[in-house]
Simulated scan of single mutants.
Amino acid sequence: MLTRKQHELLLFIDSYLGQTGFSPSFDEMKDALGLKSKSGIHRLISALEERGFIQRRHNRARALEVLRLPEPAQLSPAASPNSLNVIKGDFSQRLAGVKTGEAAASMSLPLYGRIAAGLPIEALHDHSEQVEVPMALLGQGEHYALEVAGDSMIEAGILDGDTVIIRREDNAESGQIVVALIDDAEVTLKRLRKKGNTVALEAANSAYETRIVPAERLKIQGRLVGLLRTYH
């Protein structure tokens, strides 16, 4: 049976390997789990290796291999796969780490519908649904939530079915991930690149092409500030 920290570390290593092709450093693992020293990471890795979840290649640096992920029965109650995990950050390069949501304070945000992380889809405006979001994810300003549909942002750590937290803004800097409304009809979640009188909407998946649109046809509806994921 895995403890919560063992489960968190295993998921972080697996996600990091999938995005970079190599394992995270001890400092990165320490920061992702919120530990104060690397000795705790050493103990967690040894425990995962003893239980057959990971393997260390001792002749190479930063060479951890995930052999398998746990079944629900192998998790302690605190590490249940149906527990909600929170990912916070600017998502500028890759998924920074998975942190368990432990904040007691939360607030309800409107869940407007599904946003395409693939081909743009028509914007939904169903205000009847709400989602509870830890206050730690929210800063100043107005926020709302959208459910992700598609896989075009997977290399930024944003998966199909995730719930993204959006700060409502009408402007953004190049390189930020935004909710973009095109021709007042289509909405999509993409990385923004400003190029003169045009705007490039970049996917984080090599299977998708960058979409270029005239700047006057696009409205920024908000900027990505956080993400919620439920493990099933």
Rank of each mutant, 00 (worst) to 15 (best):
V66L: 12
R68E: 04
S80Y: 04
G118E: 05
P72W: 07
A96S: 11
E65F: 15
E102D: 04
H58E: 14
R56G: 02
H127K: 13
G34C: 08
V133G: 04
A123Y: 05
V133E: 03
L69C: 03
F53P: 02
H125F: 11
K30I: 00
I121D: 07
I121Y: 05
M135V: 14
A73P: 00
R62H: 12
E142A: 12
P120A: 10
L75G: 02
G52H: 12
A32V: 01
S37F: 05
Q130R: 15
M107D: 11
I41G: 00
G101P: 03
G97T: 00
H127S: 12
S128K: 15
I41R: 01
A78L: 05
R43K: 15
L109I: 10
G141A: 07
Q93W: 10
Y112P: 00
F26A: 09
G101A: 13
R62L: 09
K99Y: 06
A79P: 00
G113K: 03
V86A: 03
R60V: 11
G52M: 11
G97Y: 01
Q130V: 12
V86Y: 00
K30E: 00
G113R: 03
K30H: 02
H58A: 12
L138P: 04
T100K: 14
G118L: 00
D31T: 03
L33K: 05
S39L: 08
L75P: 00
M107Q: 13
P70Q: 05
Q74M: 09
A73F: 12
E122F: 08
R56Y: 05
M107F: 08
A104T: 13
Q93D: 11
R43Q: 15
I115E: 01
L138Y: 13
S76T: 08
A79G: 10
D90Q: 06
G139Q: 15
A63L: 10
D126L: 13
R60D: 10
E28N: 09
I115S: 02
I115F: 04
A61I: 08
L67A: 07
K38Y: 03
K99T: 04
A103M: 08
V133Q: 06
P70F: 02
L124M: 15
L138M: 14
A136M: 15
L44H: 11
M29R: 01
S25A: 09
L137I: 06
H42C: 09
I54P: 00
G139A: 11
P120W: 02
S39M: 08
A116T: 03
Q93S: 12
E65T: 13
K88A: 06
S46Y: 13
D27Q: 11
E65M: 13
E65H: 14
G113T: 03
G40K: 08
V86L: 07
D27N: 11
S25Q: 03
R56V: 10
P70S: 05
I121A: 12
E49T: 14
L111E: 03
G101Q: 08
G97K: 00
A61M: 11
G101W: 02
D31V: 02
E71R: 11
A104I: 10
P120F: 02
E71N: 12
S106D: 09
S92A: 13
I41S: 04
G34P: 05
P81R: 06
